[in-house]
């Protein structure tokens, strides 16, 4: 036990955690933006809507690992960037579907009401429809965010040293059951604390907001 709980090991894991959070954070931000755009397009229909639909369906029905391998081995991007791009490409499709669910939940009357107030379509979307749509899907969005943090561990398949990677590197140096189990527990605990706090925080905020509205 005591040979695992050492400062250098924590620092080493912390470096990995930074990579995990960098990739996950960048992927979350970018895919939220792109996902929202795709959701709006698909909801709107027309040529661009169809294109968005094709992208979403093609990407979300293939595994994330495939995108990570492809971007790592077939593009000249540096490893961490390849990871970010691959995850963004993949998660954009997933977030687009969630946001679209929110858009569908907005009553058509809102569009008309906005229009009669002199808003143009973009303005209605920006100030009336999207805020409500996103608010309605905060729980599944946050749950997808935690999934993104977890799924970042797939980048270890191409040797990017995220938290999982650093953990496995250390694992290679320890060979007793107690050490290996402690390490697994420690790594799992780090992921757990992060994801659990995020979902708890989101849940509480959502409840408070829901109370404030109704």
């Amino acid at each position: 036990m005591s040979d695992i709980f050492q400062v250098p090991i924590f620092l080493f894991l912390l470096q990995g955690l930074r990579v995990t959070l960098t990739i996950a954070g960048a992927a979350i931000l970018m895919s939220l933006v792109f996902g929202t755009i795709l959701a709006v397009l698909r909801n709107h229909g027309g040529f661009w809507g169809h294109l968005a639909a094709v992208y979403i369906e093609a990407v979300r029905n293939a595994p994330l690992l495939l995108f990570i391998l492809a971007f790592r081995f077939m593009t000249p991007l540096p490893p961490v960037y390849a990871g970010i791009v691959a995850m963004t490409v993949f998660e954009t499709a997933a977030l687009a579907e969630i946001v679209r669910g929110g858009l569908k939940s907005i009553h058509k009357g809102q569009w008309e009401a906005g229009a009669t107030q002199g808003f143009n379509k973009i303005q209605v979307l920006r100030y009336i429809v999207l805020p409500q749509a996103i608010h309605n899907v905060i729980p599944p969005l946050v749950s997808q965010f935690t999934t993104i943090i977890k799924d970042t561990s797939y980048v270890w398949a191409v040797g990017i040293e995220d938290l999982t990677g650093k953990g496995m590197i250390i694992m290679g140096r320890y060979t007793t059951a107690a050490q290996v189990f402690t390490l697994f527990g420690l790594i799992a605990a780090i992921y757990f604390v992060i994801n659990y706090s995020i979902s708890c925080y989101a849940r509480r905020r959502h409840q408070r907001m829901a109370k404030a509205i109704y």
């Binding site: 935690t146 977890k150 799924d151 970042t152 561990s153 797939y154 270890w156 999982t164 953990g167 496995m168 694992m171 007793t176 059951a177 290996v180 189990f181 697994f184 790594i187 799992a188 992921y191 757990f192 994801n195 659990y196 979902s199």
Partner: peptide, 23 residues
């Protein structure tokens, strides 16, 4: 639900693959 949903599948699989043989 919380334990499984808040830890990565990759870690769980690694545990089954490389952890369990130790016991």
């Amino acid at each position: 639900v919380e334990l499984i949903q808040n830890t990565p599948l990759v870690i769980q699989i690694f545990f089954l693959y490389n952890g369990l043989p130790y016991i």
